[in-house]
Design a protein around this nucleic acid. Structure first.
Length: 729
RNA sequence: GGGCGCAUAGUUUAAUGGCAAAACGUCGCAUUCACAUUGCGAAGAGUCUAAGUUCGAUUCUUAGUGCGCCCACCA
């Protein structure tokens, strides 16, 4: 029966074996937990990108959830932690495109269908790698319920959501200036833009007034866009220009009349206080043009070449060639007042390194006013509670100023819009002589629709939905919605979610309003915005800066428990963490200390069967350690409840090392008897339970060893009951 | 540009309206005892600056300085 422990704890002998033991037990799956009539506790994993690999942020986030989930499971809750992966539209498309480029293949060569097939192949091969890495951390989600945002069931959820919004009249098609990459020939999202500070030039150009009474000088960094100017705007109360508002200017080269308009968005202190307005090629200018009903001249095409609308002078030239030609011409005309040096941020396409060209295009939008209201009300009524609380206010403010959501993307990888187009025709209406009807340009439908008037075929929209459109449905789409499943009834709404602060708007807010809209309940009771992990110097960890630490490296060097310890020990409150490896070292030492305490207990405690009578003759030291343990265990239970995992771990560390090991164990060596043995055994085994959520591997290994050594009746530590009584029943 | 946060021993952090605590590091001593991945002990900061509130401020208020994070992207 006796099982020996090595004098030092070696994580490599243990972690893989123990993880397998847990997985084989099935206890990560709440349906397989022993016991009945349990209250549920559910959490959704923030799905990592299909292309992602484990970083410190994932590690902190998922270890935090794991601590909570393991504690709840031990407290008797029917605990579900549902994992999944996000298809990550552009990121995945990029990775596969890059792969193909090595073989000199462009995605356009393959065509959409073949290319998407390639991504699926890639997904099958590499898409699960990040979960192997998660497993190394020792986290305990229910892998049997793993979801992917492009699973057939999930696709249905996305379509159902789209159609619901469409039927409510909240989805519309409109023209907007979006970020366009002339090299990739697609619209790209704000997230795929990289701003680089650059030293450029600012050109001051004179636009003559039609009445020849003078000029207005505008400042621009992109003189070529003047070919598409529709107006010059000034602030309505700008004294310099006040009396010119409403007058006309001659746009040089184009020789077109453009008005001087007044708009509040103009900063009178910047440049000359007069701004040239190019509606089709600048986001703010476009918005101004809507307010003033200005024409939109498309002067640059999708490849970054000047169009015929730009005029014969520059047609066919690339933008930079055109710029030079324009500058020369203005200079010749005496309209170039001056050229200054100017440092500004230039938008680059993250993937191709090309300068982003804002461009007018047709996109699909989701109206936000009603949905934002739903989220605001839920936050106001505290249906969802934020930690720290300030994020509720920050989110509310963001919701107040929210713009309609551009949900379409010109990508191939993702949820294709359930929208179908066909050539609208004007045809005589049957049975009504002389009556002409026009069929609709598009229809919204999951399968190909039939036109009520003509028999022309419909073609599905090539656009896909923004990745966040599908992630917004995560808390219920993963449980089977729009079906009425048992899981949905049992686990929705979830109890808790944690995320990094940068996706508060992109993800958390959208899940809240989606939950209210489709489930009539917020998707989670608590949102915990966790700390960000910085380098020891207080800088952001980033791959491109080479400042990141690889959690797998830490696990390899010190073990998973030590890595978890190092992360959580430094995570006090929601303050950002300047991560230092020292604490991981301390974690490794701590694991070893526990390991050796177990060895000590096994040499001292002869049997785990104690007669009832022994409790009567406790020594002062026995009583003290019992009392002290009682107190610390309550505190730790409370700390976990309020998500103060770092504080709880500090207390466990101090208690175990300094009170239990340094003091009680030393005393126990000097006092013999059954009472001592029982106290040693009782406190040790119970503290193992409290330690388990934080450092699961070493505690489970010790538990299994004690089990075989003493032959006492127990299963796995992961389902041992917390403090000998269950909360969740 | 908007928002948010931080500032305490060499380092990373803790605490408190009334003697500033710990870990790591450093130094010394001990120990073949479950653990040298150990134990005991020592040195080491008066809490970024200025003003205010107060009997009293490291703590509260205001301003400044420094560092950092997030969002937006501006002619």
């Amino acid at each position: 029966m006796t099982k020996e422990l090595n004098p030092a704890y070696n994580p490599k002998d243990v972690e893989e074996k123990i993880y397998r033991l847990w997985e084989e037990s099935g206890y990560f799956d709440p349906d397989k937990l022993p016991g009945k009539h349990r209250k549920k506790f559910s959490v959704m994993m923030a799905p990592p990108n299909i292309t992602g690999s484990l970083h410190m942020g994932h590690a902190l986030e998922n270890v935090s959830v794991d601590i909570l989930v393991r504690a709840k499971r031990m407290q008797g809750f029917k605990t579900l932690w549902l994992p999944g992966i996000d298809h990550a539209g552009i990121a995945a498309q990029n990775v596969v495109e890059k792969e193909l480029r090595k073989q000199n293949i462009r995605r356009q060569d393959l065509g959409r269908e073949k290319f998407v097939e390639k991504i699926w192949e890639w997904k099958e091969k590499y898409g699960g790698l990040i979960f192997d890495q998660f497993k190394k951390l020792g986290v305990s989600p229910d892998w049997s319920r793993t979801r992917f945002t492009l699973d057939p069931g999930y696709v249905k959820a996305v379509q159902a959501a789209f159609i619901n919004y469409y039927e409510k009249g909240w989805i519309y098609r409109g023209e907007r200036v979006i970020n366009w990459c002339p090299k990739c020939e697609t619209g790209i999202s704000d997230l795929e833009i990289e701003y680089r500070e650059e030293n450029g030039k600012i050109y001051h150009i004179k636009y003559p007034l039609t009445d020849k009474s003078g000029f207005i000088t505008v400042a621009t960094t992109r003189p070529e866009t003047m070919l598409g100017d529709a107006a010059v705007a000034v602030h309505p109360s700008d004294e310099r220009y006040k009396k010119l508002i409403g007058k006309k200017l001659i746009l040089p080269i184009q020789e077109r009349e453009i008005p001087i308009i007044a708009d509040h968005s103009i900063d009178p202190t910047f440049g000359t206080g007069a701004v040239k307005i190019t509606p089709a090629h600048d986001v703010t200018d476009f918005e101004i043009s809507l307010r003033h009903d200005l024409p939109k001249f498309r002067i640059i095409d999708g490849k970054g070449v000047m169009t015929s609308e730009a005029g014969a002078f520059c047609e066919g030239l690339k933008t930079d060639e055109c710029r030079q030609k324009i500058v020369d011409k203005l200079s010749e005309l005496g309209l170039l007042e001056k050229v200054g040096d100017y440092t500004h941020n230039v938008a680059y396409c993250e993937r191709s390194g090309t300068i982003v060209e804002p461009r007018l295009s047709k996109q699909w939008f989701l109206k936000m006013s009603e949905l934002a209201k739903l989220a605001q009300e839920a936050i106001e009524k505290k249906e969802t509670v934020f930690y720290p609380e300030k994020w509720a206010g920050i989110l509310t403010e963001w919701l107040q100023n929210i713009k309609d959501w551009n949900i379409s993307r010109q990508l191939w990888w993702g949820h294709q819009l359930p929208v179908w187009f066909h050539e609208p025709k004007c045809i005589p209406r049957k049975g009504h002589e002389g009556d002409i009807v026009k069929c609709k340009e598009y229809a919204v439908s999951i399968t190909e629709p039939k036109c009520e008037f003509c028999d022309a075929k419909f073609v599905q929209s090539e656009d896909v939905l923004d990745t966040w459109f599908s992630s917004a449905l995560w808390p219920f789409a993963t449980l089977g919605w729009p079906g009425k499943t048992e899981d949905l009834a049992t686990y929705y709404p979830t109890d808790f979610i944690t995320s990094a602060r940068e996706i508060l708007n992109l993800w958390i807010a959208r899940m809240i309003f989606s939950g209210k809209e489709f489930m009539e309940a917020v998707p989670f009771k608590t949102v915990y915005i966790h700390a960000t992990i910085l380098t020891r110097e207080g800088k952001r960890m980033s791959k491109s800066l080479g400042t990141g630490i690889d959690p797998l490296f830490l696990i390899e060097k010190y073990g998973a428990d030590a890595t978890r310890f190092g992360l959580i020990y430094q995570n006090l409150g929601t303050q950002d963490i300047r991560f230092s490896e020292e604490h991981v070292v301390a974690g490794k030492k701590f694991c070893n200390k526990i390991w050796n305490a177990a060895r000590f207990v096994m040499t001292r405690v002869k049997s785990a069967d104690f007669p009832e009578t022994t409790k009567k003759n406790l020594s002062e030291a026995d009583k003290q350690i019992h009392a002290s343990f009682e107190k610390v265990s309550e505190e730790i239970t409370d700390d976990i409840e309020v998500l103060e995992f770092g504080r709880a771990l500090h207390k466990l560390y101090d208690f175990f090392w300094h009170e239990w090991a340094d003091k009680y164990i030393e005393t126990s060596k000097k006092q013999a008897g059954l009472e001592t043995e029982e106290t040693l055994f009782y406190v040790f085994t119970n503290i193992l339970k409290l330690l388990h959520p934080f450092i699961p591997f070493v505690t489970e290994e010790i538990w299994q060893t004690l089990k075989s050594h003493y032959g006492f009746k127990t299963d796995l530590l992961i389902i041992e009951s917390w403090l000998n009584h269950d909360h969740g029943i």
